[in-house]
Simulated assay, not measured.
Amino acid sequence: MRAIYLTICQALDRITALLCALACLVLTGTILSVVILRFGFDTGFVKLQNLGGYAFAVLAILSLPYCLRRGGHVRVEVFAERMPQGYGRIADIVALFAFVIPVFGLLAWAWLPDLAYSWSIREGAIETGGLGGIYLVKTMVPLAGVLMILQAIAVLLDPRITHLDREEMQQ
């Protein structure tokens, strides 16, 4: 059962990585296009600017579970140098149980009423003539919360994923 769960989380991580890469490409292309159109041709498109903003939002929120899976999250390791070798694993377990799982569970749960309303009205662009579909971008918030919880549990189940233990495994 553990192996199946870790396989599912790895597949979800690959999908997340693909979505992040796609969002990064869209963001780069739209920003480059906006700059060229604005300064080269003295024109612009609000929909194109909105697409860049949507891509940035998707990239920013989906980068969280992507980084957690790879142990790339930010840490403040003031005491880590003086602690025994297994300290990193214990710190990860405490942090994941005490902070990551409850906070992202609350984020996903608290966001659902706003998301349901956004979907019910098919929330469109804020600007006149802008790109619609904000409800699709807002869907990424609880999705990222659920992915964070799933990846946190995967980190708890598979010690090879942790940041500090990765260095120990290479030796």
Score class of each variant (00 low, 15 high):
residue 6 L to M: 10
residue 20 C to N: 15
residue 34 V to P: 04
residue 117 Y to L: 14
residue 114 D to R: 02
residue 72 G to K: 07
residue 86 G to P: 10
residue 57 A to V: 03
residue 128 T to F: 08
residue 114 D to S: 12
residue 86 G to D: 10
residue 128 T to N: 10
residue 123 E to K: 08
residue 98 A to H: 06
residue 120 S to N: 08
residue 92 D to P: 02
residue 96 L to D: 02
residue 109 W to P: 02
residue 39 F to L: 12
residue 141 V to Q: 03
residue 55 A to F: 01
residue 48 L to P: 04
residue 89 R to M: 08
residue 37 L to H: 03
residue 136 L to H: 07
residue 110 A to G: 12
residue 127 E to I: 04
residue 10 Q to V: 10
residue 64 L to F: 14
residue 52 G to E: 04
residue 24 C to P: 03
residue 50 N to E: 06
residue 94 V to R: 12
residue 59 L to W: 12
residue 10 Q to R: 15
residue 76 V to E: 04
residue 111 W to F: 14
residue 50 N to V: 03
residue 101 I to Q: 13
residue 132 G to S: 15
residue 67 C to Y: 09
residue 110 A to N: 12
residue 114 D to H: 10
residue 148 M to Q: 02
residue 42 D to G: 06
residue 35 V to C: 11
residue 23 A to K: 10
residue 34 V to K: 05
residue 67 C to G: 10
residue 40 G to I: 12
residue 131 L to I: 03
residue 22 L to E: 01
residue 82 R to D: 10
residue 30 T to H: 03
residue 62 L to D: 01
residue 41 F to M: 11
residue 142 P to V: 06
residue 126 I to F: 14
residue 33 S to N: 11
residue 54 Y to E: 01
residue 96 L to I: 14
residue 62 L to T: 02
residue 146 V to H: 07
residue 41 F to N: 05
residue 74 V to G: 11
residue 50 N to I: 02
residue 61 I to G: 00
residue 37 L to S: 10
residue 92 D to Y: 01
residue 49 Q to K: 09
residue 26 V to Q: 04
residue 22 L to N: 04
residue 109 W to Y: 14
residue 23 A to I: 13
residue 142 P to Q: 07
residue 69 R to E: 07
residue 121 I to S: 07
residue 75 R to S: 12
residue 145 G to H: 01
residue 38 R to W: 12
residue 10 Q to C: 15
residue 116 A to R: 06
residue 119 W to D: 00
residue 17 A to V: 06
residue 57 A to N: 05
residue 32 L to M: 09
residue 64 L to I: 15
residue 116 A to S: 10
residue 70 R to L: 14
residue 132 G to M: 07
residue 90 I to L: 15
residue 128 T to G: 07
residue 48 L to K: 05
residue 67 C to F: 13
residue 104 F to W: 05
residue 114 D to W: 04
